[in-house]
Nucleic acid binder design. Structure first.
Length: 937
RNA sequence: GGGCCUAUAGCUCAGUAGGUUAGAGCGCACCCCUGAUAAGGGUGAGGUGGCUGGUUCGACUCCAGCUAGGCCCA
């Protein structure tokens, strides 16, 4: 029976009411919000709203249209979305046009795999159609996935590198670069499968154990060499190779510049090899007695001339190379620039020719002299026999080693130099111009500029050709008569028009004569028939021209972009390919700022991989926890370095999310009867604590606005989260409960609290909207009808810090009070552990303080009890402090005595008051509550 | 092997133009509340600042090397 009256009083309180649920249930709720955004066409509404404002263009780097999004692409798009949403709210017109990279080898590869044997019978045009379908399928999937993340953009009007206009732009840019003399052709070795007669990408190579010959070959030394000039015996440099069939293409012998080499006399001849290999090699070639007649550095041997062991009329020059190893072989390496990547680089350095005596089917051409017509697989034996016959083969054995093989036919592949197209870094000083442009770009973080500069300074010429089908053809014709390459304004113009109309497919479907204008003749010889180039462009060239194809063609966008934002791998990739094409054509970078983020790694900082089993799938996170959890994870991390994610980390993010959500919910619940237009209280009538809360909130708003401007979102997250926890939840909101619940609903005290809560809520629901896009929208829709001047929080304006709320004096005063409060909390805890009190309202607190502090605190009167959330606070001089009082360790001259509060517990507000029972109509209530109830009647 | 980057409590982050016992929140432990309740409040315990040297009166902060990890090359 005694419970009854309490129930009655409870209904007289203004307890929080809200439809905003505590349980987020994001996996269900977010799709509903997405549906609403789509129904209201929010992207268009944002465009209308920001129309005419200054533009901020974040140009999307196109992900590859293959597979589902992974957590790295998710992070990238979320970062972009936070930026775009912030810029939009803070007064910019910031359209976001997403893009996809649709051409390229991986798609081709997957389509080929699906086709199986059929791949060989299908036409290029048909094959391209299948690749197109494949790419578009993944564009659709990824579009849905990115949209599910809450990323706002022109999703149904993206840019795709397979679109006709886009394809045509490649031709335009290629034409410009060609015209500027930046494009040239040169032989370069590539992986080549002689079985399938096709070029292979690195990803199409499998390494298998293969057996190869391992032979030493004596190259007769022709030059006079100072250290051994006095010896009359025949002299040889002994080289090592595992590919005898590449010897016809030999042009050089590479030695290590810093290694020691020796000349040894044995069996009537002088052999030159690395000192470190001497013992081993001597054993192998069976010379037990030898004499070292000279010792010298590899660098001494540079430019020595040897006779080619197969072709006496040819020569082989000694060159220096760091990669020459001394663990195997002779320390002198056979070098054929047409047959190997390292050999090729050395060839470039020494300006050596790159003979290529092997045709596409793996047979020697006439360039291979006596071996012409021979299949290279059979040639090893022939060459070994030939060398034996000439006594140039001191040693021969076999080894097994990992050798590159074709993914399809499993046969060993070869390196074979073929004609490739390049963009020169140096012919017209593209490198220098690029470096100049880099200096005019704002690179964030600042080390980013060092990285790009280092790469551009050191990079080789850009090989832009691929022997593939799924891409944009290199728009070059060859005159059938004079064999000259033909690239003129006229031919380029014709191809551009063709691609615009019919797409790049037309290149494969039409003849050169059909493509070229009627009556077109070779500018050099007047020839009338032409061949088309069969190579296509590197996909990095394609994505590199996105600034030209997208920013310059879409009316809502502008060039150069304000910002590119990608992972640090794009210093080599898109940042650079975009830079080169743009500098090559326009002499400036296509971006004003470049923001780099790190890679997503696991909780231990290791890269994600299936084999480690540490892969976090963003789609999993979304379906289990919600996109806002992923978004909050992004915002909580310092993305300028690698970002860790793990189930454990996501759990912590989820807990932080709940705290933010509940804080919003509590505030919403206390505003259920608040009509801002009518009930707001003027600043002057607010209590000091309210003003303090506004001061804190305003300072924070200024800080986070700055952080957003600097793209330091984790600073936003941490400071807002800390504010919600420390200043709001455990302090301001906790203190406010009595005022909100127990005061008369329409009292100034309560309305003052609501005024501040409302202000804080509106400020931070907006300030967090770029991050918690879904949750803030949900909060927004629970706001009082009259304040929702716009339908969505994402259509609202960025909150402006109200400078008049800043009050340093108040802040200093309250810092003092709060320090005392913290000490009181310690004293209360001691009392609680001694079972003197439970709830802090059961306590009365006696403060023993300095005279100064007594004067200061005295001014606050009853307010102190409210702030401490106790029933009463009394202040005495410090010297009166009883022995039993808690002495503060932090503050001098502060002692605190906690004792059970006198009086009785008010059944309504639960404070212990001596006034309880003073009003006969309400025997269980304190004076304040009794009065409140009187006014209600 | 080279270039760029990272390394502060279990987790996410602060901080210092080098100077008293290195901070916050979360998590954890314990307590309170049951009128934010699959909530809320309080107290407390957690750090050889990756390791080793060096510079300095003094280094988490500067320098060198090493280790681990990331991106990009070779």
């Amino acid at each position: 029976m005694s419970e009854q009256p309490k129930q009655d009083y409870k209904v007289t309180l203004n307890l929080p009411k809200t439809d905003f649920p505590m349980k987020a249930n994001l996996p269900q709720r977010e799709p509903e919000t997405l549906k609403r955004w789509q129904d209201m066409n929010i992207y268009d509404q944002i465009r209308k709203k920001t129309s005419g404002k200054p533009k901020f263009i974040l140009h999307d780097g196109p992900p590859y249209a293959n597979g589902n999004i992974h957590v790295g692409t998710a992070m990238n798009k979320i970062l972009k979305d936070i930026i775009v949403r912030y810029k939009t709210m803070s007064g910019f017109d910031s359209p976001f046009v997403p893009g996809w990279d649709c051409h390229g080898q991986p798609i081709e590869h997957n389509v080929e795999k699906q086709l199986g044997e059929r791949a060989k019978t299908i036409s290029q045009v048909e094959f391209r159609k299948l690749c197109r379908d494949y790419a578009l399928d993944f564009v659709n999937k990824q579009r849905e996935q990115f949209m599910r993340l809450g990323v706002v953009g022109d999703w149904f009007n993206p840019y795709l590198t397979l679109e006709h206009e886009y394809e045509a732009t490649n031709v335009k840019v290629f034409g410009e670069l060609y015209k500027r003399g930046l494009v040239y052709k040169r032989r370069k070795p590539i992986h080549w499968c002689i079985e399938d007669q096709t070029a292979l990408a690195e990803a199409e190579i499998e390494y298998r154990e293969e057996t190869s010959p391992s032979i030493y070959v004596k190259f007769p030394l022709k030059s006079e060499f100072e250290p051994i000039k006095d010896f009359n015996e025949p002299k040889f440099v002994v080289i090592w190779t595992t590919t005898p069939w590449t010897l016809p293409a030999n042009v050089a012998i590479a030695v290590h510049p810093d290694a020691w080499y020796v000349a040894v006399r044995a069996a009537g001849q002088i052999l030159i090899l690395a000192e470190a290999r001497l013992e081993e090699v001597a054993k192998e070639i069976g010379i037990s007695e030898y004499e070292i007649v000279a010792r010298f550095k590899g660098s001494n041997m540079e430019f020595l001339i040897c006779e080619h062991p197969l072709f006496a009329e040819k020569e082989s020059i000694v060159v220096l190379a760091d990669y020459v190893g001394l663990d195997t072989g002779t320390g002198a390496v056979h070098t054929a620039p047409g047959h190997g990547q390292e050999d090729y680089m050395t060839g470039l350095k020494y300006d050596l020719p790159a003979p290529m005596p092997v045709d596409a089917t793996g047979r020697f051409t006439k360039e291979a002299g006596q071996f012409a017509g021979m299949y290279i697989i059979d040639a090893n034996k022939a060459i070994i026999d030939y060398l034996k016959g000439k006594d140039l083969l001191p040693f021969s054995t076999e080894i097994t080693h990992a050798y590159p093989c074709c993914w399809r036919c499993k046969n060993p592949v070869i390196f074979r130099a073929t004609e490739q197209w390049f963009i020169s870094m140096d012919i017209n000083n593209l490198r220098g111009a690029a470096l100049d442009s880099i200096g005019k770009v704002n690179w964030i973080p600042d080390w980013s500029v060092r990285r790009i500069v280092g790469m551009v300074e050191a990079r080789p010429d850009w090989c832009i050709s691929r022997q593939r089908s799924w891409g944009v053809p290199i728009p070059v014709f060859y005159c059938a008569d004079c064999q000259d390459e033909v690239v003129t304004d006229e031919t380029i113009g014709a191809v551009i028009e063709l691609f615009k109309e019919k797409g790049a497919d037309a290149w494969f479907a039409m003849s050169a004569e059909e493509i070229l204008p009627n009556g077109f003749t070779c500018p050099k010889c007047g020839g009338k028939t032409f061949e088309k180039e069969t190579d296509i462009l590197d996909v990095w060239f394609e994505s590199g021209v996105s600034n030209e194809a997208v920013l310059k063609t879409r009316p809502e966008l502008s060039w150069p972009a304000d910002l590119y934002t990608e992972g640090s791998d794009q210093h080599r990739g898109w940042f650079q390919s975009s830079l080169m094409t743009s500098v090559g054509v326009h002499d400036m970078a296509p971006y004003k700022s470049v923001l780099t983020h790190g890679f997503v790694v696991d909780g231990e900082g290791r890269k994600m991989s299936k084999s480690l089993g540490n892969v976090v799938d963003p789609l999993d996170v979304i379906s289990k926890s919600g996109a806002d959890i992923l978004r909050l994870w992004v915002a909580s991390s310092d993305y300028t370095v690698d970002v860790a994610i793990s189930p454990d980390i996501l759990k912590h993010v989820g807990e932080a999310y709940r705290r933010i959500r509940n804080t919003f919910r509590f505030i919403l619940g206390n505003l259920y009867d608040f009509r801002p237009g009518v009930d707001s209280v003027d600043y002057d009538q607010l209590q000091e604590l309210d003003k303090w809360a506004l001061h804190e909130a305003t300072g924070l708003l200024k800080n986070i606005t700055e952080a957003y401007n600097d793209y330091r979102f984790h600073a936003v997250y941490h400071s807002v989260y800390s504010f919600f926890t420390n200043e709001l939840s455990s302090l301001y909101l906790d203190i406010l409960k009595d005022r909100l619940y127990a005061s008369a609903a329409d009292s100034v005290d309560r309305r003052a609290a609501q005024t501040v809560l409302f202000e804080i809520l509106v400020t931070f629901v907006k300030a967090l909207a770029p991050i918690l896009a879904f949750t803030c929208e949900e909060v927004w829709s629970n706001l009082p009808e009259e304040v929702r001047d716009v339908e969505s929080v994402h259509l609202s304006d960025w909150p402006v810090a109200n400078e008049k709320y800043l009050n340093p004096k108040l802040d200093a005063d309250w810092n003092k009070i709060l320090k005392v409060r913290a000490e009181v909390a310690k004293a209360l805890e001691i009392a609680r552990n001694e079972k003197k009190i439970g709830n802090s309202l059961e306590a009365q607190v006696e403060l023993y303080v300095s005279e100064q502090l007594q004067e200061f605190l005295g001014k606050y009167g009853d307010m102190l009890a409210q702030v401490m959330i106790v029933s009463s606070v009394k202040i005495y001089p410090y010297f009166e402090a009883p022995e039993s009082a808690y002495k503060s360790e932090l503050l001098q001259n502060l002692a605190i005595k906690v004792s059970p509060a006198p009086g009785a517990k008010c059944e309504r507000c639960w404070r212990f008051e001596e006034t309880v029972g003073g009003v006969p109509e309400h025997p269980g209530l304190c004076a304040r509550c009794a009065a409140v109830l009187e006014t209600r009647v």
